[in-house]
Amino acid sequence: MRGQVIAALLFSLLPLSSVYGHFQELIPSSEAVHSPAEATLNFDIQFTHPMARGPVMTMQPPEAFGVVTASGQTDLLPALKAQPSGRFSAEYQIKSPGDHLFYLTPAPYWEPEEGVMIQHFTKVVVDAFGGEPAWDQLVGLPVEIEPLTRPYGIWQGNLFQGIVKKNGQPVPFAEVEVEWRNDGSISSVQDPYVTQVVKADGNGVFSYVMPKSGWWGFAALITADKPMRNPEGVDVPVEQGALIWIFAKPMQ
């Protein structure tokens, strides 16, 4: 009994980064644009633990930020603005109908507690004026989730399915971490409920029912083929994340 108490105390002293999942956030002010008055999107970009509401890790300037539309691919790096507490923001004006696939490649992040470099290739799809759908199109990221469920217009309680891909090919039995972006309405839960974990099948397909409205992050974690040099000059493993954000709306 005494040993169990000591073990529980030691576990409670572990930093959040070793208990909860890291998630690169790329959150637009809206997942769908229906009128010109809504056409200005504002993005909140941070590397954090969404369910725990922090801490926010300091981001270095991202390597890539852009959008893919029916007109092609547009570099949005110049739109990024550094914010306090290691965050970034950006503004984008929707000018045409159709799906907009926003993507972000952050600079690799050194996580000394896990001994890995972390780089989460992140995307979010915004529907604009109900135009031409292209929500299942791949951006071409090294690791990426191809949605099988349209990633917008989703009700709370809907099933989301996707295929985990690496270099365009499915990743069998990939592990996918899932977290809800806490809006402050849930203040305390036991650790296993913070980060949900599902496993893809042999074809790289995973499924998850979103039980609450709000933003949900799906991060398929894959070890890179090659190591990367950490700030101390040592070659270490690289955790590549294929990450997509989905908004579930309450049915009222």
Rank of each mutant, 00 (worst) to 15 (best):
M1S: 12
G3E: 06
A7G: 00
S18L: 14
Y20V: 05
F23E: 02
F23T: 00
F23S: 02
L26P: 00
S29K: 03
S30W: 01
A32P: 00
V33E: 01
T40Q: 12
I45A: 04
P50T: 08
M51P: 00
R53P: 01
G54Y: 11
V56Y: 07
Q60T: 04
F65T: 04
V68G: 01
T69D: 03
T74K: 15
L77I: 08
P78R: 06
A79F: 07
P84F: 14
S85N: 12
F88T: 00
F102Q: 01
Y103A: 07
P106W: 10
P108W: 08
V116N: 09
M117H: 00
T122M: 13
V125M: 09
V126L: 10
V126A: 07
G131E: 04
P133Y: 05
P133V: 11
Q137R: 15
L138T: 02
V139Y: 01
L148I: 07
Y152M: 09
Q156K: 15
Q156D: 05
Q156M: 13
Q156G: 06
G157Y: 09
Q161W: 06
Q161V: 03
G162C: 13
I163Y: 02
P172M: 11
N182E: 01
V189C: 02
Q190R: 10
G202D: 14
V209I: 15
P211V: 15
S213L: 09
W215M: 12
A219T: 04
K226Q: 14
V234A: 10
D235M: 15
P237R: 03
L243M: 13
I244M: 15
I244H: 12
I244P: 04
W245I: 04
W245C: 07
W245Q: 08
K249A: 15
M251N: 10
